[in-house]
Design a protein around this nucleic acid. Structure first.
Length: 287
DNA sequence: GGCCAGGTGATGG
DNA sequence: CCATCACATGGC
């Protein structure tokens, strides 16, 4: 058993993080205890639960992180997932003079929190394609409950090795479309077969990752942008094709119709180089 | 019941 | 290269 206290640069509003995590029924969040139990894997891919509990405030953020083994490796994972090495103040300053200033006042201190594993992120993005959020969560939940594993009440995503062995029919039974079944299983087979190495992805630029991943059947620009954003934590992504972003912009600016791509590109110019935060807060505004 | 959903690939010009 | 369409199914 290990336990560590970590201080983070303010502002960092962890209760908002928990609130967002709790939207996904798969996450083991306790708003009362101000904590989340994370399903992480150590280097041997063994499931390890790590608990992250808020001990401070948004202006003096502090966390108590605890686990049972592999302290150093898992602490690094927690810091990566919660972006504890970043500082949100420059982001806040940047947006105070933009068309999103009100949004950034409202969500001040909300960090970009990553999915717990890159593979999970990729599968989740494929599953979420072209589905309403509610049904998307249902499908993801079935996927994890059927092929993942549970430990002390925390669900662990399946490994690519497990999914690569499935038949398309196994996912069809969970009400995946045939196409979605193919995308999920075929991509998992590429990973286990060695033609797609997720561990090397973070060494590449956004553009190189885009070029590499869109070649894969079932992975288009929207999916890659989401993987860059929520899988790798890249700071400057704006998923222009995303219906949620479009609706959020329409609402934020009081537009009559959804914005065109050209309008979105134009208004986003002043948001560089922090487009990912603009995207995140726009999403938050309609959740 | 009809339209839309945090898209993508296939097809046809 | 660009426009259009099928895809599966739930939610409203």
């Amino acid at each position: 058993m290990w336990k560590e206290t970590v201080s983070v640069s303010p502002p960092y509003h962890f209760d908002r993080v928990l609130e967002r995590l709790s939207l996904d029924p798969l996450n083991a969040v306790s708003l009362e205890k101000r904590e989340v139990r994370l399903p992480l894997r150590n280097k041997e891919k063994k499931p390890c639960i790590v608990t992250v509990q808020a001990a401070g405030t948004a202006d003096a953020p502090e966390f108590i992180v605890s686990g049972t083994e592999d302290r150093d490796g898992l602490m690094e994972e927690v810091k990566r997932i919660f972006r504890w090495k970043e500082n949100l103040q420059p982001v806040l300053d940047h947006f105070s003079a933009t068309s999103l200033s009100k949004l950034f006042e409202e969500h001040a201190g909300t960090p970009l929190v990553l999915d717990f594993h890159l593979y999970h992120c990729m599968m989740k993005c494929i599953i979420h394609q072209q589905l309403n959020l509610s049904f998307a969560y249902t499908l993801t939940e079935r996927f994890v409950h059927t092929f993942g594993e549970q430990k002390d009440g925390v669900w662990f995503y399946p490994l690519p090795e497990t999914i690569a062995k499935l038949d398309y029919g196994d996912l069809r039974e969970l009400q995946f479309s045939m196409r979605k079944s193919e995308y999920v299983i075929d991509t998992s087979r590429m990973i286990t077969g060695g033609s797609l190495n997720l561990d090397e992805l973070d060494l590449l630029s956004d553009e190189d990752i885009m070029d590499k991943l869109v070649k894969i059947r079932g992975i288009g620009p929207w999916t890659v942008q989401n993987v860059l954003l929520f899988g790798l934590g890249r700071p400057n992504l704006f998923p222009i094709a995303d219906i949620g972003i479009q609706n959020a912009i329409k609402r934020h600016f009081g537009l009559k119709d959804k914005p065109t791509k050209e309008e979105m590109l134009e208004m986003s110019k002043e948001w560089h180089p922090y487009l990912s935060y603009a995207s995140l807060y726009l999403w938050r505004s309609i959740e």
